[in-house]
Nucleic acid binder design. Structure first.
Lengths: 215, 215
DNA sequence: TTCTATGGTGACCAGGTGGTCACTCTAGAA
DNA sequence: TTCTAGAGTGACCACCTGGTCACCATAGAA
């Protein structure tokens, strides 16, 4: 529980606390993160942090709510975009790219939570983040089928799996060097080129007319 | 360092120790795994375990070497397979599926290591496992291009990324419920159907003739 | 019957953990 | 000039961690 005390703090102090917590959780995950280390880094007493958030879990929850808030923004912009299905898919991937580039630490926290059991708030946290494919990707693809831009025999579950998986994997590769070393640390321009190549794959796999309308 | 003492033990005891360690590391990852818990589960004294492996790291290394050994087997079988490029890709995915179904805990350890920094032996461990795409996938695709089964304008890096990513993601979905809930806990038959659908996607995206030779 | 080599033991250690709480300090109200 | 509300403090707590080591048990050699 975030107490009133924390909200009364000067905004810049709130930010400093949040920033330090994000850094610590991104580096070490929930269990290995150390409250002592954070407090030392911040130069405040341990008691203060516990007055603010009640517990380590409370602090983590605050970080998590902050992350979900930041994540909602780019998503809305992509949802209302114009263009055909593939243009809109591309835009949503670009939105993901931008989020990961601006908040790499939050994305790293997400990945750690995903593959680590016993993390508090894991289920609700993942459910909210994954609302992405449920509330956004799927309707977009359904719409694409209605418009005849996608193959009529497409299995929707698998199409969602394909796109969601490839998008996530691309962002992972850009964030975690070991996932796919060749794709790590690309420049802005190179990253865009990779996105174009990826969209070309997806078009060939899903489009109604073998994806050759762009020749 | 695994000491001579451990190798002198009765094989069934060695197996029991290994099995317990695999379970603990799969559930909790390296840092959260507890030597005390393992020792309690095994019903032996803590000192014994340290006589065998010297340290928690030593025990982890033993588990890791065991995992790499098991992983090498199915890979060799897939490498020498007959058929066209897509048949061989399919076989290698089937090999991966079989490995994950027989050793889900080892795959969970791999995923935890991949997304957790500060784990001992992380780099050499991942390097060995990822030799998969370097030494197997890439030559297979190069061969496919020489044979003219793949589009001539294909970017090899991206093709490797695509296949590696989709294969890994499918196995992840089958292992970790939260990755893609719709694909978790499938029966043997359903899993094969998903593999066929996935291969269809890949064929459409990569094949020289728009992947329609199977009509 | 000694001696020795080897597996097995668990109380003990230093150090880190999340969490507590009686206390101080200070700005502003009365 | 008092009084008070609330931010800030850090020594302290119980607990858990990986790791140690003096000691014990026993099988087989001498």
């Amino acid at each position: 529980m975030r107490s009133k005390t924390f909200e009364n703090l000067a905004p810049e102090k709130q930010e400093r606390v949040l920033d330090t917590a994000v850094e610590e959780f991104a580096q070490h995950g929930f269990h290995q993160a150390s409250v002592n280390r954070m407090v030392k880094q911040l130069g405040i007493a341990k008691g203060s942090l516990f007055k603010y958030f009640g517990s380590k879990e409370g602090l983590f929850q605050h970080v998590f709510e902050h992350a979900v808030d930041l994540f909602k923004g780019p998503l809305k912009a992509a949802r209302n975009a114009e263009g055909d299905t593939f243009d809109r898919l591309r835009l949503s991937l670009m939105a993901g790219l931008e989020f990961v580039q601006q908040h790499p630490r939050l994305y790293r926290i997400y990945l750690k939570v995903l593959f680590q059991e016993n993390v508090p708030f894991r289920e609700p946290f993942l459910q909210q983040v994954r609302g992405y494919s449920a509330k956004f990707l799927r309707p977009l693809l359904e719409d694409g089928m209605r418009r005849g831009e996608l193959r009529a025999d497409l299995d929707l579950d698998m199409a969602v799996f394909l796109i969601d998986g490839l998008f996530d994997r691309l962002l992972q590769s850009l964030t975690v060097p070991e996932v796919h070393p060749a794709l790590h640390g690309l420049s802005q321009g190179d990253a865009r080129q990779r996105i174009d190549q990826l969209m070309d794959f997806i078009r060939r796999a899903l489009a109604a007319n073998n994806g050759e309308q762009h020749a």
